[in-house]
Nucleic acid binder design. Structure first.
Lengths: 101, 101
DNA sequence: CATTTTAATCGTAAAATTACGATTAATCTT
DNA sequence: AAGATTAATCGTAATTTTACGATTAAAATG
């Protein structure tokens, strides 16, 4: 890899769309978001029960969704409650809608 | 990596959504699709001029978009005309719309 | 028929992604 | 205070992605 994405000029909307899309680009993360969207919020533990993958892997996926801005975590010791980030969800919704017409 | 996606049961819509999303998960591919969608079709060469990356890399991205079903190629020797696959574009549009509300 | 044009494919390298188990940190319970 | 619970982080390995230049195949042009 000789060049990084940062060297190239893309429109901000292309970058934003690609970032959201990348986060949605794995079925596990889609399932997480589906579950989260259905009941608005849930704990990591709920997802560990729901999905047949390791707890650490789910944490990793949650981190990616968080980094993309699609979810946010709220401390409810000793648990962590994850919720859809409605502001960015809406932003993504509009971006995809506009892009796909 | 001890487990592959294939071992896990996902809903078909999650897989379809993730597949489309993954294809949209790179700004270069988003730019390609934007350009393609604007004028409906174009040749590989147009994209090579448009984007500051190697021809082989663009071919690779086109292949991915084709594999995801978002575009299709038509032989216009010695060129190849790429167009949005409207059927699947519509499918993606509905999937994302439904998913993001 | 030789040359040029077009775009895919090959070979390769660097980086990112995905997965796991083990460990850790924080908080709650006894 | 000791132990249990929860979920992030660490370390690691396999795989995939992204990028490049070089080569190849197919068709058009001279």
């Amino acid at each position: 890899m000789k060049r990084t994405v940062k060297d190239i000029e893309y429109t901000q909307s292309s970058i934003d769309l690609a970032t959201f899309a990348k986060a949605l680009g794995h079925p596990t993360r889609v399932e997480i978001l589906k579950h989260l969207n259905k009941q608005s919020c849930c704990f990591t533990g709920d997802l560990v029960e729901l999905l047949p993958i390791a707890q650490s892997t789910i944490s990793q996926h949650l981190k990616e969704l968080k980094n993309a801005g699609l979810i946010q975590g709220e401390l409810k010791p000793p648990k962590i409650k994850y919720c859809i980030n409605r502001k960015n969800w809406k932003k993504a919704s509009l971006l995809f809608k506009d892009f796909l017409e």
